[in-house]
Nucleic acid binder design. Sequence first.
DNA 1: GCCTGATGTAAAAGCTATTTACATGAGCTG
DNA 2: CAGCTCATGTAAATAGCTTTTACATCAGGC
Lengths: 215, 215
Amino acid sequence: MSWSKDEKDGPRGYHHGNLKEALVRAALELIAQKGSAGFTFAEAARWAGVSPAAPYRHFRDRDDLLANVALRGFEQFEIALARAWDDGRPDALTALERMGKAYLAFARAEPAYYSAMFESGVPPASTPELRAAGERAFAVLREAAEKVCSQMPPKGRPPALMVALHIWATSHGIASLFGRGDAAQRTLPMSAEELLEAGVLVYLRGLGVTAGSGS
Amino acid sequence: MSWSKDEKDGPRGYHHGNLKEALVRAALELIAQKGSAGFTFAEAARWAGVSPAAPYRHFRDRDDLLANVALRGFEQFEIALARAWDDGRPDALTALERMGKAYLAFARAEPAYYSAMFESGVPPASTPELRAAGERAFAVLREAAEKVCSQMPPKGRPPALMVALHIWATSHGIASLFGRGDAAQRTLPMSAEELLEAGVLVYLRGLGVTAGSGS
DNA sequence: GCCTGATGTAAAAGCTATTTACATGAGCTG
DNA sequence: CAGCTCATGTAAATAGCTTTTACATCAGGC
């Protein structure tokens, strides 16, 4: 009771006790350090203090672990976006901007998750669960787009799905290109957040949305 | 004169004669097939018919080859964008839309280049040449943004750099997320081209640009 | 015709991924 | 509590990749 299943990684016996979680944590650490490409199954095992074959008891192969990390990433991502959206309080536009910031903040705060989710080469539909998790995260954005659109005059109202895709693509593009102030990244004459906020504002104005018009 | 330095890869002697080019072509082929992550130095060597150590005479290591592919990719990319822009003929907006289509067309037609450029983990500034090539490609986009902006009334005219970054991010986001109809990619209720064109039109309207107002 | 540098090869060390046969021990069953 | 059994680890082996080092070949200049 005092050696495993705990957060503390003290000495252990033959069995690890919580290897799956330990491997995921190791993967996150390694991906954050060396990118999803440089991440190694064997090193994750070493990091967890087990033999190179042990991880195969929990993941089919290296890609399966990566996909699992991506899955958890989408779940965290959904939570982060939903929290920022906060049901559109106090108003849809304010909440949308907040969600944009949350998008970039997630990419910066959780580069390992973000990398596994979008840059690891794991197909978004490699498993049904992964696909579903990705769709749930996108659904938050779509919900926001729907609320924004619903406040527009019905005449000439754009499809909410399209709006959601535009905002997603722009956010993702900014995060991918300039997201982490990383030295391994392009630099920018302004912050990524400012760039995204400005872009979304211009875009919404193009849709006919005027700030301060909704509840 | 009949066995090497040619396109034809007939039998060869001790020396290959054009190994560097052959390796780049092999890399493009392999990256297109298995992604920039699955690409292997050894396999490229095999594909070129040389020993696994031979490539080291032309590239410092695997990443160096990848960076070289990315460099050539940016050069081709610049050409493709510049051709589409065509100095803003017949008018800036038409040319800008054409360039957007060229962006997506490049990502789809040259997935190996695109992958090496943006998804391989090669830092954009890993070499000065790579950085410069990337900047030259972006400069085409920036030039277009400047022309579009210059047609707006000076009052409230947005910074062209920002406009260029917005369009770049959106294009890149769409290309990354939905770019190749690939099974390994997300699907879309519309074509990537339509999505981008609509997004840019809305964005430009938000800037106050009205279609058919410039020469 | 001979040197020399550029370009390849061979062989080896040190990784990694993955499989297979075997070991351990946690928890259920009686 | 004894014994069984399955989940979880280990050891060892195969196969492939990366990179280095010492050696081989040959094209072109003197």
